[in-house]
C-alpha cells in the first residue's frame, strides 16, 4: 500500500521558543490510550495550551491568531526528546502541523516523524533563531520547505539548505510503503535467517 508523497510544504510558521521539548510535553501520557484519530489534535501540547479547567491559555502561541492555522513549527534546540511515543507525531499532524524546524531532534522522534510524513527540518541554531524571530514578527511568515531540493525558503527570500537522510527522503518523495519494500526482500531475509541458524552470532 502506497502513502501520500511529501514533496513541498508551504505554510504559515508559528514561533515556538522552547528547547528540550520532550514528547511528554507534546502529548501527555494519559492520552496515549486513545486510538489514533482526529481527536489527537486536541491533545497537542495539552497541558501547555489549556489550564486545569480546560480553558485555553491565551499566552500559548498556538492559541493566538494567526498561529492557530500554522502548519510549520519553528522551535529551537532539541525538539522531541524522551519517550518514543509516536502519539507526539500523531498529535502534531492532527493539529495541522506538517513540518517542525529545530537545530536538533530526539533520534526516535525524528524517525517517527519521517515514517509519518511529518518533516523534521534541521538547520543551524542561528538560522532557526532567525526564522523564529521572523515568524514572531508583525507580519505572518510563510515558509516554503522543498524536500525535493532540500531547501527552505524564508520570507525574505533567503534559501537555506537542509538534509534529510537519503533513504527516508526517497520514501517520502515516492510515497513508498517501507514495510512493502522490506517484504519484497523476503528471500534475502530468509537467506540471512538460514545462515544464522547454521552458525549463530
Amino acid at each position: 500500500m502506497s502513502r501520500q508523497p511529501v514533496t513541498c510544504i508551504e505554510g504559515l510558521a508559528a514561533p515556538f521558543d522552547a528547547s528540550n521539548v520532550d514528547t511528554d510535553q507534546i502529548i501527555p501520557a494519559r492520552f496515549l490510550r486513545r486510538p489514533r484519530d482526529a481527536q489527537y489534535g486536541s491533545y497537542l501540547f495539552h497541558d501547555l495550551r489549556f489550564d486545569e479547567a480546560g480553558r485555553e491559555r491565551p499566552d500559548f502561541i498556538l492559541n493566538q491568531a494567526p498561529f492557530r492555522q500554522a502548519s510549520i513549527l519553528v522551535a529551537a534546540r532539541a525538539f522531541g526528546v524522551g519517550s518514543s511515543r509516536e502519539g507526539a507525531v500523531y498529535a502534531l499532524q492532527a493539529h495541522g502541523i506538517r513540518a517542525v524546524i529545530a537545530e536538533t531532534f530526539g533520534d526516535i522522534f525524528f524517525s517517527n516523524a519521517l515514517k509519518n510524513g511529518l518533516l523534521p527540518v534541521r538547520l543551524s541554531l542561528p538560522v532557526v533563531n532567525a526564522l523564529r524571530h521572523a515568524a514572531a514578527g508583525p507580519s505572518p511568515a510563510r515558509l516554503v520547505i522543498d524536500l525535493e531540493r532540500q531547501e527552505l525558503v524564508a520570507p525574505d527570500g533567503a534559501r537555506h539548505a537542509f538534509t534529510v537522510p537519503a533513504f527516508a527522503r526517497e520514501c517520502l518523495l515516492a510515497g513508498q510503503d517501507e514495510i512493502g519494500l522490506t517484504l519484497s526482500l523476503l528471500p534475502q531475509i530468509e537467506a540471512f535467517e538460514a545462515r544464522r541458524s547454521n552458525s549463530p552470532a
Binding site: E86, S111, E178, T182
Partner: peptide, 22 residues
C-alpha cells in the same frame, strides 16, 4: 533501542528495521 509504533509494525511484519549506524 526504542522505536515508535511505525517501526514496531515494521519489525512485527518483517523482523527487520532500516537503520543508519549511529
Amino acid at each position: 533501542f526504542g522505536v515508535g509504533a511505525s517501526e514496531v509494525a515494521h519489525v512485527l511484519a518483517t523482523q527487520c528495521l532500516w537503520q543508519s549506524r549511529p
